[in-house]
Design a protein around this nucleic acid. Structure first.
Lengths: 260, 260
DNA sequence: CACTATTTGTCCGTATGTATG
DNA sequence: TCATACATACGGACAAATAGT
């Protein structure tokens, strides 16, 4: 067995699915690309030969060639007759990035299966610290929403949001009937970036009442900044502060670890 | 425009990529399947006709048909000549939970930039619910650790952990000087999978004292199950319950959307 | 009872993409 | 590079089941 080929077949822990609808060359290409992008194979490393790849993954040599040609087309590797294929991509570790799309869809699915009560829906001047994070001038207004989300009659989440990206006149009814994310989309407001901070807070009198719990009870606190991309720059368009009842809502995550 | 077709084309916010190597029928099939599984379209709902789907997504009728046939093959929908295609999958709402994403790197970097005090380090019988999740027989023991993590003299996190994957004799000193994840690695215990649940709890008397706060104060609660892979199966090797002081510690995450 | 519109099922021919040896 | 097989995708045409007029 060849050590270099193993890096891909073993260490990546993946195999190609012969039955899957995605073409084999593309599966192999994606697998190799990932290994290069996440630094599993360093810059300058010689890739396995077409023959080795073909054997390791049980595909024909042409399929292996196609995969490597695609890499070459993206300038991730350099191919030379008689020399072999070499990585020409310098790995630079990046900040943690996660697929936002999955998460947003989950949020949306949750939104569909719970009831919303819109307590507030009006344009108002946000408090100074929020106005500041939103980059608003003095006295500028934003769309303020207060919502309570319930399931089976039990409230589990309270949301206070300030939105600057929407200038259309919107009513309580709009937000009662339609998930906020869908309204964003409807007005072509695309969220491309999100930062979230999770913490814990004691319930205030108002929150306690709206979440049907007692004052001082521990709540999960979530602050989310949502950004959109306008031209070259990122612009914050929404500030959300959510509070969740810990017995009726929990944040869960499932993490798989690929590389060492 | 047809309202039903909109649910898929608009609300899902996705489009099919004509140029992508994954077949169109499969892209469409996946999109529809997701909408059924997460309850966007309820049981009994009539799906759009092949013709409507074809127009909405700019594909041929045959492609739309193929996608729906795949759904029918999985018993997610029922197809009848003249009647149309109807969802026959009952969506079962799961307990309200939202997904989070990666933060393992932060866990480790945090471990290096703070001080640990090991309060407990011994083998003991875990309480029944924990013994159960760990898959332990009656009376079996696990390694119990109680630790407090501080920064600048201020305690911010309390960790109670039960580990079954380590049988070596380990002392308080081992865990004071070395991050737990590194000890795991040292004994070739590879964590390949982790599930975490974040919630909020009121501080007990003991936690309040160790975290230098008051009884009943809100704390961030984190429960983590760590798994390793032995042969074909996953085995749980560690149960961790952490409590964080919300003013001294917060979970933060940064999510970006990849290039489409 | 026909008549019609709707919708799925089936078949054709053709073009392109994938994968093998 | 070539020949071959198979899957994908298209447009079109017609048949068969369903429901309503």
């Amino acid at each position: 067995m060849d050590a270099l080929a193993d890096i891909f077949s073993q260490s990546q822990g993946r195999e190609l699915r012969q039955d899957a609808p995605t073409p084999l060359y593309f599966q192999l290409y994606s697998l190799l690309k990932q290994a290069i992008l996440n630094g599993t194979v360093a810059n300058g490393t010689q890739m396995p030969t077409e023959q080795q790849l073909a054997e390791s993954f049980s595909v024909s040599r042409i399929t292996a060639k196609r995969a490597m040609d695609e890499l070459a087309a993206e300038n991730l590797v350099e191919r030379r007759r008689g020399k072999g294929t070499h990585v020409i991509y310098e790995y630079a570790p990046k900040p943690v990035q996660a697929p936002l799309t999955d998460m947003l869809q989950e949020i949306e699915s949750m939104a569909r299966h719970s009831d919303v009560k819109v307590m507030t829906c009006r344009r108002a001047r946000p408090p100074a610290p929020i106005a500041h994070t939103l980059g608003l001038e003095d006295g500028a207004k934003a769309l303020l929403l207060h919502r309570v989300r319930s399931r089976d009659g039990q409230p589990f989440g309270h949301y206070a949001s300030w939105t600057v990206g929407l200038n259309e006149p919107l009513s309580k009814r709009d937000f009662r009937e339609t998930p906020r994310l869908e309204i964003f989309r409807r007005y072509d407001l695309r969220i491309t970036h999100v930062t979230q901070t999770i913490s814990a807070e004691a319930a205030s009198a108002e929150l306690a009442e709206r979440l049907n719990t007692s004052v001082g009870a521990p709540l999960i606190s979530l602050i989310r900044h949502s950004y959109t991309t306008r031209g070259d720059t990122e612009q914050i368009v929404d500030y959300l502060h959510a509070h969740y009842h810990p017995e009726r809502f929990q944040y869960q995550m499932d993490l798989k670890i690929d590389g060492a």
